[in-house]
């Protein structure tokens, strides 16, 4: 079966989103009548991401030695400089979103610090014991940001990861930076959201609930426009105020 140009384009998109080979990818697309969105949904619902469930076997010693390479000279964990080196070695900027995905694999509790347990268990979960392997895996990790389900997990994880220690809420400035980083491209609404937050007199820290509900809100508005927002729903007050601000 030969493909027309539009189908070829969709196939290429599908492969880049899912990381699949062209034959099985074509199967997904034809089963959904070449509807790219449905096919991607189907792909994620089918749990086709085998690699995530079963990480490749790793060599514990190799991982340990990697940890020592990046470990801070003054403490028993990887800190600022170590993380910068780590990023450089795997070929990403320290401000790249994908570092959040890696941190999630590490299950890191606090930004800017990887403990030994976090680093070692995380590398094992990623199935990588060499820097080159991790570097190869980056595109896969980046794709996880496209999957709504795993993106939501990462997004929610980021909240606890990024807040200052011993504080319940996320600092105002940090929250804004993270929203830009995580949602800025996907949801243009975020820019107006940030504008709204910055226009307010009181710049409160952001609660977990507001953080999590804002993603739902952004998704709904992206899909249905502001009509998708139900004013009698259980939206946090800050989001209610935002809608009022948009309408005025």
């Amino acid at each position: 079966m030969s493909l027309n140009s539009r189908q070829r384009e969709k196939l290429a998109q599908f492969m880049s989103i899912t990381g699949m080979q062209d034959v099985p990818a074509k199967k997904f697309l034809t089963s959904k009548n070449w509807d790219l969105e449905l096919a991607v949904d189907e792909f994620y619902n089918s749990g086709a991401q085998v690699s995530r469930d079963q990480p490749a076997p790793t060599n514990q010693k190799k991982i340990d030695s990697l940890f020592t390479r990046y470990k801070s000279s003054t403490s028993a964990q990887i800190e600022g400089e170590g993380i910068e080196n780590f990023c450089r070695d795997i070929g990403i900027e320290p401000m790249d979103v994908v570092i959040l995905v890696i941190s999630k694999y590490f299950n890191a509790a606090t930004m800017g610090i990887y403990t030994k347990d976090e680093f070692c268990n995380g590398m094992k979960a990623l199935g990588c014991d060499e820097i080159s392997k991790l570097r190869q895996k980056i595109p896969d990790l980046r794709r996880e940001l496209n999957n709504p389900q795993s993106f939501k997990e990462i997004y929610n994880y980021v909240f606890a990861f990024s807040r200052d220690q011993g504080v319940r809420n996320l600092g105002f400035e940090t929250a804004i930076a993270l929203w830009r980083l995580l949602l800025g491209e996907k949801y243009p609404l975020v820019n107006r959201w940030i504008g709204f937050l910055e226009s307010r007199d009181k710049k409160h820290d952001i609660s977990k609930d507001t953080w999590e509900m804002f993603l739902d809100f952004a998704i709904i508005v992206e899909r249905e426009g502001l009509q998708g927002y139900d004013p009698s729903g259980a939206w946090p007050v800050l989001i209610d105020d935002f809608v009022e601000y948009l309408n005025s």
């Binding site: 609660s207 977990k208 609930d209 507001t210 259980a234 946090p236 007050v237 209610d240």
Partner: peptide, 10 residues
């Protein structure tokens, strides 16, 4: 009421 609910959530 909503802001109290939010408070109780947090």
């Amino acid at each position: 009421i909503k802001s109290r609910i939010e408070n109780l959530i947090s």
